[in-house]
Write a protein that binds this DNA or RNA. Sequence first.
DNA 1: GTTCTAGAAC
DNA 2: GTTCTAGAAC
Length: 206
Amino acid sequence: MAASSGCGQKRKTESANGGASSKKKPNFAWNKGLLASMDDPELQEYVDEKVVIIKDKYPKAKHHFLVMPKENIPNLNSLKPEHLELLEYLHEKGEEVIHRTDETLKFRLGYHAVPSMSHLHLHVISQDFDSPCLKNKKHWNSFTTEYFFDSEDIMKMLKEKGKVQLDSSKFQDVLKRNLRCHVCRKDFSTMPALKTHIKVHSYKNT
DNA sequence: GTTCTAGAAC
DNA sequence: GTTCTAGAAC
């Protein structure tokens, strides 16, 4: 059967790397990974003159896309008032990809308060969170707590304040909070228990 | 962001 | 003994 985990784990049988120089994987600049992913045709979902949409390399739900401007905007703190139209465009393109994918499912469009990866990216993620890549508390809390800012709220902030200023220290504790179902608010003590539980809910967009 | 894995939790 | 979490990795 060889059922795989489906979450991009490495094959240990891989050995055709032609040399003894493969002891360690260079981890430096891992946070620049989105730049490479943007140019990967395997991941690209949509491209135009202003944006690139890719499938998240490690999707945390059945459907998980990243909408990114081609313009190099490192993060939310870099946003200026003149970027508002661009944010609206990202949102619009995100909604389009939802309609092309599965409009019967509930989705959210939003930004992480403190993203690990550099280069502004709008998450477009279905709310089932049914994925083998969703593995730990940080994953869960980053999409189901106030760590996840709805795109509309970010746009509103930029519009009203002329910037998006988030205190990153405030969000470290949020990621360590107890595991709680995003639908019925029931608490769970382990990830496996939570992952089993969330399957009982419907994620239809009705 | 992920992988790996020690040792805590059960 | 096995499951699960959480911190280091260059």
